[in-house]
Design a protein around this nucleic acid. Structure first.
Ligand SMILES: [Mn+2]
Ligand SMILES: [Mn+2]
Ligand SMILES: [Zn+2]
Ligand SMILES: [Zn+2]
Lengths: 126, 126
DNA sequence: GTAATATTGCAACTTTGTCGCAATAAAATA
DNA sequence: TATTTTATTGCGACAAAGTTGCAATATTAC
């Protein structure tokens, strides 16, 4: 399964990059120049995640957000995202705070993924 | 709006208490002795949350889980849940780890809620 | 240019949770 | 205890978010 360079990929990645924040599917769709199908957007995003270009955050509203991976692009095997995310309850913005968290789990527990979200009001909305 | 003592409330609370873990709607329904409607279960749970008896966690699978509040029952105004939760990818169990997290947010940011979930494999599944 | 196949669009579908409304049952009142 | 009040329930419909199957399309390899 070799990846192909397509219009959809390019445009979705561009929206994510220029935003700088974590975006939900509908945020992405709203910022696209061309119309791309909902299912396609999800498929592209999930492929990005598999490839380590993007990571997914599940908000405390149950929605998925996607953000460019800043540090872990090259080193896929180290694709752990134990940083905190912040979701503004007013403006809806979701951002990666570059604060890593390391938690000591109980004996025998193995961590695979971290989904750390703090919600509240961002500096522009508080 | 005075709360009433009902069969549904009693039974749902009993399931939560005897489990000790955070349970999703379907986990609760499966453990109920009598049949209680889905909408009712959600309404009861949301009322528990409002009253500070229970808190809600949104898993990295997008599902809601509900757990008894251990410390914050009496002091509603301190109803902050900045502890970590663990979800087992194998057996599905979700539990409250009593490890509080305190994050220093950027200037001007105000935290309202914490939703901190680590997923992986629990001691029985690893 | 042609063939192989990864990707897309569309529609249908699933899952999770909420809401309106009439029926029911818990608590207050007489 | 009987009656009234209204919080709660059950049912159905609905909404939002995300996934999947399949035929059509576009990208890459030959
Ligand atoms: Mn990353
Ligand atoms: Mn609690
Ligand atoms: Zn904001
Ligand atoms: Zn387990």
């Amino acid at each position: 399964m070799k990846r192909r360079k397509t219009h959809s990929k390019t445009e979705i990645l561009e929206v994510l990059k220029s935003s700088g924040n974590a975006l939900s599917h509908d945020m992405i769709q709203a910022n696209l120049k061309s119309d791309i199908d909902r299912a396609t957007i999800y498929r592209v995003l999930n492929r990005f995640c598999e490839d380590g270009q993007v990571h997914k955050i599940v908000g405390d509203n149950g929605k998925q957000y996607f953000a460019i991976c800043s540090n872990c692009g090259e080193k896929k095997h180290l694709h752990s995202h134990n940083h905190i995310h912040f979701r503004c309850l007013q403006c809806g913005k979701v951002e990666c705070l570059e604060r890593d968290i390391s938690v000591a789990l109980p004996e025998g527990y193995v961590a695979k993924m971290h989904n750390l979200v703090i919600s509240g009001f961002c500096s522009e909305c508080s």
